[in-house]
Amino acid sequence: MIRRYITYCLLLFVFVTATCFAAEIKQGTISGKWITKNDGPMANAQVLLFDMAVGPPPASEKYLRVPDVTTSIDNDGKFSVQVPPGRYYLVMRKRADESTFGPPRDGDLQYYSRDNRGKAKLIIVKSGKETKIGTISEASVFKKRQTKYEKGMTAIEGTVTDEEGKPLEGLRVFVYTSPEMVGKPQYASEGTGNDGKFLVNVNNEGTYYLKVRSHYGGGKPVDGEFMGGYGRPDAPAVVEVKKGQIKSDINISIQKFVVRGKPE
Rank of each mutant, 00 (worst) to 15 (best):
Y149V: 05
E157V: 04
S140C: 11
E138S: 03
K143P: 01
L171S: 13
T147K: 04
E138R: 08
L168R: 03
G170P: 09
Q146L: 11
V160N: 08
Q146G: 10
F142M: 09
T131I: 11
G165E: 04
S140G: 04
T161M: 11
R172M: 15
V160D: 04
L168P: 13
G170H: 15
E169S: 08
T161S: 10
V160A: 09
I156G: 11
E130T: 14
V173T: 14
R145C: 02
G152R: 11
S140P: 03
T154I: 03
E169L: 06
M153Q: 09
Y149F: 10
G170F: 15
L168S: 12
K144L: 02
K129S: 06
I133F: 15
T159K: 10
K144W: 05
T135N: 03
T159D: 06
V173G: 14
I136H: 01
Q146E: 02
M153R: 02
V160K: 08
E163Q: 12
E163G: 02
S137W: 14
K144T: 05
E138N: 00
D162L: 07
K148W: 11
G170T: 13
R145V: 09
G152F: 05
K166N: 01
D162H: 11
M153P: 04
K144Y: 09
T154R: 01
T131E: 15
F142Y: 07
M153V: 13
G170S: 14
K144G: 02
G165Q: 03
K129C: 12
I156E: 00
P167W: 13
S137E: 12
Y149S: 12
K143H: 04
A155N: 06
G152Q: 07
E169P: 03
P167H: 11
K143T: 09
G170L: 06
K148T: 12
Q146W: 08
K151Q: 05
G134Y: 13
G152N: 08
V173L: 14
E163W: 10
T154L: 01
I156V: 02
L171W: 13
R145A: 11
G165L: 08
T131C: 15
K143I: 05
A155F: 04
V173W: 15
T135Y: 01
K129L: 12
K148L: 00
M153E: 08
K132E: 13
T135F: 02
A155S: 03
E169I: 00
S137G: 06
T161I: 11
E138H: 15
E169W: 09
